[in-house]
Amino acid sequence: MQVELRSDERIDQLYSHDIQIIQSPRVFSFSLDAVLLADFARPVLKRSGQVVDLCAGNGAVGLFLSAKTRAAITAVELQPRLADMARRSILLNDLEDRMKVLTLDLNDAFTRIPKDSVDTVTCNPPYFPVTPASKKNPNRYLAVARHELTVTLEQVIRITSGLLKTTGHAYLVHRPDRLGELITLMGKYRLAPKRVRLVYPKAGRDANIVLVEGIKDGRPGGMKFEAPVIIYGEDGQYTPAMKEMLYGDGHQ
């Protein structure tokens, strides 16, 4: 379907899933975090299932997940401009029959999505806590996406757990330096961490991204650290694993 673009917008493509997405450098463009999270997540597969993506931005994670599941997908995004971009991307990919966007503060999620009703929740939340010393992006769209101006990590975990059915799965991407806090909060809100994957910009460098799966009311213990992902090779090009995530088999 043809959709109207604003002057600052473009259409990009995630070739591995044949998904087109509306982006804007002035407002929001998805990062590798969204690709990594969608690759890591194992969403419910059945058509009657419910998937919710919180802090959805321009809808990237939900759009990418649409290739992995037949379930209904609901994206929750606070900022109307980004929610509008997500809705037009849904039309662009002919996904309006099973994907929708709620322009909603995450803290009000239960007013539109019943508690204990969701099979899979994904979230790429703001990474940086707000402190008096915080240097926030002057672009409000980017500041809200990156800093905990409208939602904290604890609120994200509390809402995620509240939405999930018992044994429902949560998938989050964050910074490794907050992994301890993330695991503690998951325990507080009945999410048992089960899989952890670290992402490294290059071999020999410190990890800069962590992906975590939790199960609501899951049995304690059994946490697995998966093989890491390395984004760039020594030549500065994407590694084969990243090329496959971005372009699929046979694309370079």
Rank of each mutant, 00 (worst) to 15 (best):
G57D: 08
G57S: 07
A60K: 04
A60V: 07
V61L: 10
V61N: 07
G62F: 08
G62A: 12
L63S: 09
L63I: 06
F64E: 11
F64W: 11
L65W: 14
S66T: 12
S66N: 10
A67V: 11
A67P: 10
T69Y: 05
T69I: 13
R70M: 11
R70C: 05
A71L: 13
A71I: 13
A71H: 07
A72V: 07
A72S: 14
A72H: 15
A72Y: 13
A72Q: 15
A72D: 14
I73R: 12
T74D: 03
T74L: 04
A75T: 14
A75G: 15
V76C: 02
V76K: 05
V76F: 09
V76M: 05
E77K: 08
L78D: 02
L78T: 06
L78R: 13
Q79E: 13
Q79F: 09
Q79P: 12
Q79C: 08
Q79W: 06
P80Y: 07
P80G: 03
R81C: 02
R81Y: 13
L82I: 10
L82P: 07
L82S: 11
A83P: 03
A83H: 03
M85Y: 00
A86S: 10
A86W: 06
R88N: 04
R88S: 01
S89K: 00
S89Q: 00
I90P: 03
I90H: 04
L91F: 00
L92N: 04
N93Y: 07
N93E: 02
N93G: 01
D94Y: 05
D94R: 14
L95Y: 11
L95A: 01
L95S: 06
L95D: 08
D97S: 14
M99C: 02
M99D: 01
M99V: 04
M99S: 01
K100Q: 15
V101C: 05
L102P: 02
L102W: 05
T103C: 12
T103L: 03
L104P: 04
L104H: 06
L106R: 03
N107L: 10
N107F: 00
N107H: 00
D108N: 14
D108C: 08
D108Q: 14
A109E: 04
F110W: 10
T111W: 00
T111N: 09
T111Q: 12
T111M: 01
